[in-house]
Computed example of a mutant assay.
Amino acid sequence: MKKATINMLPKGILFDFDGVVVDSFNSHYTAWKSAFKELFDTEIIPFPKSCTGKSPLIIAAHFCSVIGKEEQAEALFFLKDNHLDINFTKPKVLPGVFEITNFLTEKNIPYGIASNATKLFLKNSIHHLNLNFTTVFGVEDYEKPKPSPEAYITLAKALGFLENDFNNIWVFEDSLTGTTAAKLAGMKPIGILTVHSEKELKDAGSVIAFPTLFEAFEYLNDI
């Protein structure tokens, strides 16, 4: 592993959830499909890459717009959340999650999650996967979800940081939506290559990018 080009550990690290900590695509898309089928008695379209990282209400609006039912977006949003809870399927932990959280705990570096996923899904996932995250914010906790910076500002303040600390906080993101949110918050977006290419993430504002959190852990351990 080459020597890190950032030569100081961050004051804090903030994590997106879906696509960074876990692979939850099947969990979410299965719930979208069953909720859409129940509400409209028709099959849903494939999940569009353009919706990655966006709030569930925006995703619901997109699915509804395809069949001209935009006014039903809120109903689909709540029904999908219900299906996600009732038919909860554990997501898959992505590489490096336990290594990096153990490292941060040992170094006394505060960390937490700010996601556009619902709070219930986050809490269920963390519980069933035995993940070491105690400070967690979901889409219900913000007036404006990502790409607004509110999610990451809310999390950073909950961890005890002031605004003049923000430029020393790393944010792990796999989506362009979340990368924009981190950048607007004045923090350092760090890309995870789950969905987008390194170029796409860097064009959106990522300082550096890694395949998974495991390579990011190695990078931090090399500083």
Rank of each mutant, 00 (worst) to 15 (best):
K146D: 01
F210D: 15
F17Y: 08
L79K: 13
G160K: 07
V93R: 05
L220M: 12
K11A: 07
E150I: 12
W32Y: 11
H62Q: 08
G186A: 04
F47A: 11
S175Q: 02
G96P: 06
G19Q: 11
N82R: 08
L176G: 05
K183H: 04
A181K: 03
Q72Y: 11
I58A: 07
T30I: 13
A158I: 06
P95D: 00
H127S: 15
L14P: 06
P10Q: 07
P95Y: 00
V22A: 06
I153V: 15
Y29A: 00
E70H: 08
V66F: 06
I153H: 10
T154D: 09
I59P: 04
P48Q: 08
D165S: 13
W170L: 10
I59T: 04
G12F: 04
T135N: 08
P149F: 14
N124Q: 14
N168K: 15
A156S: 14
V139Y: 09
A156M: 05
K90D: 08
L129A: 13
K92E: 09
I86F: 01
G138C: 09
S206I: 03
T194Y: 01
S24G: 07
A60M: 04
F98W: 05
S115Q: 06
F172A: 06
N102A: 10
A216N: 10
K146R: 07
A4H: 06
T135K: 14
K11N: 08
F166K: 13
H83F: 12
I113F: 07
K146H: 04
F78D: 01
H127M: 14
I190L: 07
I109P: 04
K146C: 12
W32Q: 00
G205Q: 01
E218M: 00
A75H: 04
K69Q: 12
P189Q: 05
F77A: 00
K144T: 10
I192V: 13
I192W: 03
E200N: 11
V66W: 02
N164I: 15
I13E: 06
S24E: 11
T30N: 15
T177F: 06
A209L: 15
I192K: 00
K3N: 10
Y29Q: 07
W32E: 01
N130D: 12
L176N: 13
L193T: 09
M187Y: 02
H62Y: 08
S65T: 11
F47Y: 03
A204W: 11
K123N: 15
P147F: 09
S34H: 12
I13Y: 02
V207W: 14
I169N: 15
T180G: 12
T89Q: 14
A60S: 06
V22P: 08
K69I: 02
I6E: 12
I58C: 01
N221G: 05
G53S: 05
P211W: 10
